[in-house]
Design a binder for these strands. Structure first.
Lengths: 255, 255
DNA sequence: GCGGAAATGTACGACAGCGTACAATGTCGG
DNA sequence: CCGACATTGTACGCTGTCGTACATTTCCGC
């Protein structure tokens, strides 16, 4: 895409969130005044069921995890959200019931938008609707794959996959992470993560120390992970490409 | 809802599929000529990646399962679709990539709609969009819960849950099922299902013989299943209620 | 530097579910 | 009625992960 093409559709600087930046100029202009830059802290809960957060959140730098929790206290991560998406999608349905919980995995910047504004915008049935529909469907695939993965694949593969999908969304190749947190995300005990992490370190794919991980060998880590990673990644890449190449367009007709 | 209220919005008889029946009259009229009644056979694949099925499917009697499969051959069911929904939702995104596969679990009637027609309708940004958005989000929750469940819960609980969620959508309290099929769905070996099934039978919650199950004690089965069942069920009940009580309305404003 | 807290490493028995194999039973076509 | 086949029951040893407990290391505030 040429610089002039970009200029023709947006006067303001890109926010850094792909979903927002893909909106046509007029639509973005309606939202812009209500977008509040905000920084999320590590482990900050963005949509806790008890607090009834009034905002949705568009990550720029930060990375969040979406969790499902059972009444028995068990929890698992079902998806990761970075600057390609929005935190708050699963609560659109407007139900009072328990929904996904979002927690900040990598602290950083993002944009808050009051849910009311979002709802108002969606009633106009604008391109935003289409974007979110596309995004929701990619999330559906992503969560589905998470389901397969957590059921069928071993601890090492799953750790590798998790590390990659966060590394994709985090600024550098290093990010904060404790084994306890990772064990929480993938639904195993902490000692199991230690075993997997040691294995990955032994193979010189990652390095870590007290709350920090660094990806040493990306290719190697991909090889160590299950195919779930590549599959989901490919799906989001399609979205990213579509959103940057054909900004503001409606849902693409299918064959 | 009174009979007159229903009459005012639809002249034609209800199809039996809640999603379709919730559409405003005009919208439904546009679709009606293209809806082709069709019967699905046991284990018939509705959206196989290789066949590129040109239709979406609205179950009336029948029940389908959505599967995710890995490249390694592993598969798990991530959701069930009955007359509250549509088979074909997850492929909206228009990607070329591998998507969920749908397979008929309980044979029966339904309505086929050419995907082209659906796409055309969606470009009008009608109430159908909102319905499918709501449905997609309920599915998201449903798949997320499936993820938690298959990771954290035992074979007996998961079998009970699966039986209930199919029984909810199947006409009677009896439906066709082999242990092999169930083992495939929940991602365990067949012998594991035998153990779980025996256990449920021992507790007099179900009865079965050669490819047929019957739910004997619904309440008991709910108690034997994990809370995942009730949670997902509640979510879909919200949709069912909304769709029958406020037909044709747009997305409800939230708070 | 020191003390405490958090993070990580490790060990050990327990157990759920796996892979496999084979027997027993029911069903259906010829 | 018989043979073939699908379905279900059961057994065996095995492996991965669990639950728990405790030791060790690293970091941070004082």
């Amino acid at each position: 895409m040429s610089a002039t093409a970009r200029e023709s559709r947006r006067r303001t600087a890109p926010t850094g969130n792909l979903l927002l930046d893909s909106l046509p100029r007029g639509e973005f202009a309606r939202l812009a005044p209500h977008l509040k830059p905000s920084r999320t802290a590590l482990l900050e809960e963005l949509h806790c069921r008890s607090t009834s957060d009034p905002d949705v959140f568009f990550p720029v730098n930060s990375v969040s995890s979406l969790l499902v929790h059972g009444l028995d206290g068990s929890e698992v991560e079902v998806a990761t959200v970075g600057n390609e998406g929005m935190v708050g999608l699963p609560v659109f349905i407007g139900s009072e019931a328990v929904v996904f919980e979002a927690i900040t995995q990598v602290p950083g910047e993002g944009l808050r938008l009051p849910r009311k504004i979002l709802t108002r915008e969606l009633r106009r049935r604008s391109a935003f609707n289409d974007r979110l529909t596309e995004y929701a469907e990619a999330m559906l695939l992503s969560v589905g794959q998470a389901c397969l993965c957590s059921r069928m694949h071993g601890k090492v593969e799953r750790c590798a996959r998790w590390l990659l999908s966060v590394a994709d969304r985090a600024p550098g190749s290093e990010f904060p992470l404790t084994q306890k947190f990772l064990s929480w995300m993938i639904g195993v005990r902490r000692a199991t993560v230690t075993e997997a992490a040691r294995e990955l370190q032994r193979r010189k794919l990652i390095d870590y120390r007290r709350g920090e991980v660094r990806v040493l060998d990306r290719k190697g880590l991909e090889a160590a992970s299950c195919e779930c990673y590549a599959h989901v990644r490919a799906e989001f890449d399609i979205l990213r490409r579509r959103w940057t190449e054909r900004p503001g367009s409606r849902i693409a007709p299918r064959t």
